[in-house]
Design a protein around this nucleic acid. Structure first.
Length: 269
DNA sequence: GCCCAGGGAATCG
DNA sequence: CGATTCCATGGG
């Protein structure tokens, strides 16, 4: 089934490549293929139009996934007066914060610790091939109960190293009901942070990424090595009030800009 | 071989 | 408290 969605001031490539998701790959024709929930999807952008080929899911689902109901123009306008964010906004303002699955985001960002994006993608790919439900075009992300039943030895093929026991701890806490992920969407942000920090392998940075990308908590502000550089270089005297008006989106603009334009390791990716 | 990577836990002072 | 060290692994 084909869906056509009109999204103004949107960039598909920046949205899928800005480090918030790990299961999309660019194709030679410039389109992207990936897996969302239990659907493989192929997506292309032509002007303001998004063209999706997916077997199931109504158009509504994809409109929600690409966060169409959030007023980005209004949010980005709050950055007026901050020259750094004005510049980043002009280049990368087409980024949307995807409405991804919270469980998948949690595990993905636990796996992200002390490694880099290409390898995170590899670990997730192998995890899905090993334990995810086979679907046309690939594998879904494993469920909490499937993962919770595994031992560390079962997960050796994933090559996640010391992160293996972290994702097992997360799976057990979610599967047992000790942590109810659905509640993180509406919980007061600090309470949501505390909840996630109870998982082994979840520190501040992973908690912020999980909240921002898995639960659309725009108050979250993940700080990784790139963001530390960006903050040091661009905001030596502290973050601006404009950035604090929507930390999550400000962070994503600054992070992406630093990764693409930062000097030191710019050749890495 | 060395260094780094969208870090976190354990330990030490 | 803050600072170190260790944790697996792959790529440059």
């Amino acid at each position: 089934m084909q869906h056509i969605i009109s999204i103004p001031n949107f960039s598909l490539s920046d949205t899928l490549c800005c480090g918030q998701c790990f299961r999309f790959s660019e194709q030679v024709d410039g389109s992207y293929t990936g897996i969302v929930q239990n659907q493989s999807v192929r997506i292309a952008q032509k002007g303001d139009q998004l063209i999706l080929r997916a077997l199931q899911f109504p158009t509504d689902f994809w409109e929600n996934y690409f966060d169409l109901q959030t007023d980005y123009e209004q949010i980005l306008s709050r950055f007026d007066g901050d020259p750094v964010l004005e510049t980043a906004r002009a280049k990368y303002g087409g980024i949307r914060i995807l409405r991804q699955d919270g469980w998948e985001a949690l595990i993905s960002f636990i796996l992200s610790s002390n490694t880099h994006i290409p390898r995170i993608r590899g670990m997730i790919q192998r995890l899905c091939e090993l334990l995810g439900e086979p679907i046309p075009g690939g594998h879904a992300f494993p469920t909490p109960s499937t993962l919770a039943r595994c031992s560390e030895k079962d997960l050796v093929p994933v090559r996640a190293g010391f992160r293996t026991r972290y994702i097992l701890d997360a799976a057990k806490k979610v599967d047992s009901g000790e942590i109810v992920l659905d509640q993180l969407k509406d919980m007061p942000i600090d309470q949501a942070r505390e909840t996630l920090l109870n998982i082994c392998g979840v520190g501040e940075k992973v908690a912020e990424c999980t909240l921002l990308f898995g639960f659309h908590r725009l108050e979250a502000f993940p700080v990784d090595v790139w963001m530390k550089k960006a903050l040091q270089n661009r905001y030596p005297d502290g973050l601006s009030r404009q950035a604090l008006s929507c930390p999550g989106i400000a962070q994503q603009l600054l992070f992406y800009q630093e990764r693409l334009e930062g000097h030191v390791y710019s050749k890495t990716y």
